[in-house]
Nucleic acid binder design. Structure first.
Lengths: 143, 143
DNA sequence: AATCTTACTTGCGAAATGCAAGTGAAAATG
DNA sequence: CATTTTCACTTGCATTTCGCAAGTAAGATT
């Protein structure tokens, strides 16, 4: 495994600042959501997701997520044009962050996807366990 | 209370998307951190915080946080030039989001402020309870 | 062989960011 | 009580990022 200690110089040592520098934009967490909750694994799927990310922005965000060790790629054995994007352990560890952000918005804004929210509210820990379980299965399969 | 249904048109109805549209930039959550964890309440304090936000960006973010109902202002009775910024209930409800972002970065990046992180890890719920308690006290006092 | 998909890249105008230098009102100072 | 500071911002301007439209190259399909 390559060590990445190139220019990870944060504006400050505060852990929240690190998170914000890595994830603080309007798209990165949505890509992670699509992978974590909807099982998206290809460029085309991300491109066609609800919010309509521009193709150059998508390419840029994917590169940054790879650089930060949040996702990885592997060639699709069944189609040489495709790449399969997967969440790393570091990436799946963002599940609690996503969950809290969903719960906050659901509580304070008018949003959709009630079933998801109710599931999170009913038993947060088992919801997170289910996400981690699905990820572990997929990861085991692809190794 | 004024109704705010002016242009809250999100890119999608997904609650995560709403959160990302409100909080997805490099500064908003740091301002909230300063208020929630460090007790900052004035413009000058935010300006002089670790990461060095530019004054025009700070003014812009404060306006947006007010517009989203996350913070409020009141004049300082002891100094006519000052405004006192406070978190609303909606703002203090971001505590779990901040906490998870701190824990994630602390687990996966090299960051400082170990004491804070250890406290969060040791008992997350009581940490959150303490934050809410401090907020309730301050809010009661200023009303 | 021709066409279609997939995962991008390129160009370019518009918007956001960052820095430095104001501004105006209120408070502190001599 | 005139002058200087402090405070909470604005304004200007150069740089960076964003977003849309239009390519492009390699692999798959027909």
């Amino acid at each position: 495994m390559p060590k990445r200690r190139a220019s990870p110089k944060w504006r400050s040592g505060c852990p929240l600042n690190a998170s914000v520098e890595i994830l603080g934009d309007r798209w990165s967490l949505l890509i992670i959501r699509d992978m974590m909750l909807r099982g998206f694994r290809s460029y085309k799927e991300f491109l066609e997701s609800y919010e309509g990310i521009a193709t150059n922005i998508l390419a840029d965000r994917l590169q940054k997520l790879i650089a930060h060790g949040i996702i990885t790629t592997e060639p699709d054995p069944s189609d040489g044009r495709k790449l399969i994007y997967s969440l790393t352990a570091k990436g799946i560890d963002l599940a609690p962050v996503l969950t809290e952000m969903v719960l906050w918005a659901a509580a304070h804004e008018e949003t959709d996807n009630r079933p998801l929210v109710l599931q999170m509210q009913k038993d947060k820990e088992q919801f997170l366990a289910a996400i981690r379980h699905r990820w572990a299965e997929q990861t085991a399969r692809s190794t």
